[in-house]
Simulated scan of single mutants.
Amino acid sequence: MAEDIYKEKKRGYGKFIFWIVLIIFLFGGTTIWYKYYFVFGEGVKSGYLNYAVRKGNVFKTYEGKLIQQGFGNNSKSGALTSYEFEFSIEDEAVFKQMEANSGKYFDLHYKEYHGVLPWRGNTVYVVDKVVNIK
């Protein structure tokens, strides 16, 4: 009789440990998905392509910078200011298209994530296609 009680307690602890581990894995998986794979925002940015490069020590990624012009609040009496939009590039074909047209005016579609993955790029902004080149 004492052995049966011991086996039931042991079985109860096993179920408890199983559920705790399952909850931890589900919470951890959901957190990782939300931080690194959930698209927080997407849109289009326009400007002149400053550079498009392939760089990295371990993971070679495509990076770029867009120079946007506009009227800023901190400028003196309506003077033009420039804003920089740094981004990572998802696809090699998009990178080649940008590299061949450096210095031109681009409309780029991008996705914004909450976190950076080293194999995806150095920024939370990832350009997935070129909308227009002028």
Results as ranks from 00 to 15, higher is better:
2 A>H: 14
2 A>K: 13
7 K>H: 10
7 K>N: 14
8 E>Q: 10
8 E>L: 10
12 G>N: 12
14 G>F: 10
16 F>L: 11
17 I>A: 05
18 F>G: 05
20 I>Y: 04
24 I>E: 06
25 F>R: 07
27 F>K: 10
27 F>V: 11
30 T>Q: 11
36 Y>M: 01
36 Y>S: 02
37 Y>C: 01
37 Y>H: 07
37 Y>K: 02
37 Y>V: 02
37 Y>D: 05
37 Y>M: 04
38 F>P: 03
40 F>D: 15
41 G>W: 06
42 E>P: 00
43 G>W: 00
46 S>V: 13
47 G>D: 02
48 Y>D: 07
49 L>K: 01
50 N>W: 13
53 V>E: 15
54 R>Y: 13
54 R>Q: 10
55 K>S: 13
55 K>G: 13
57 N>A: 14
58 V>M: 14
58 V>K: 14
59 F>R: 04
60 K>T: 09
60 K>R: 08
61 T>V: 11
61 T>Y: 04
62 Y>V: 00
63 E>N: 10
63 E>V: 08
65 K>S: 10
65 K>C: 15
67 I>D: 03
67 I>C: 06
69 Q>G: 09
71 F>V: 13
72 G>V: 08
73 N>K: 07
73 N>S: 14
74 N>D: 11
74 N>E: 08
74 N>R: 09
76 K>P: 09
78 G>Q: 00
78 G>I: 02
79 A>G: 08
80 L>P: 04
80 L>M: 08
81 T>V: 08
81 T>L: 09
82 S>N: 12
82 S>I: 14
86 E>Q: 08
87 F>N: 01
88 S>N: 02
88 S>Q: 01
90 E>R: 06
90 E>F: 03
91 D>R: 06
92 E>R: 07
93 A>S: 13
94 V>P: 03
95 F>P: 03
95 F>K: 02
95 F>W: 03
95 F>G: 02
97 Q>H: 05
97 Q>V: 11
97 Q>N: 10
97 Q>M: 07
98 M>H: 01
104 K>A: 07
104 K>E: 14
106 F>G: 00
106 F>A: 05
106 F>D: 05
107 D>H: 14
107 D>T: 09
108 L>T: 00
108 L>V: 06
108 L>M: 03
108 L>P: 02
109 H>N: 12
110 Y>C: 04
112 E>S: 09
113 Y>R: 04
113 Y>C: 01
114 H>F: 06
115 G>C: 04
115 G>A: 06
116 V>D: 01
117 L>P: 00
118 P>V: 00
119 W>P: 00
119 W>C: 02
121 G>Y: 02
122 N>R: 11
122 N>E: 07
123 T>W: 06
123 T>E: 12
124 V>T: 12
125 Y>H: 11
125 Y>D: 07
126 V>Y: 00
126 V>L: 15
127 V>S: 02
130 V>E: 01
130 V>C: 01
131 V>K: 08
131 V>A: 05
132 N>C: 04
133 I>S: 02
133 I>A: 04
133 I>T: 04
134 K>A: 10
134 K>I: 06
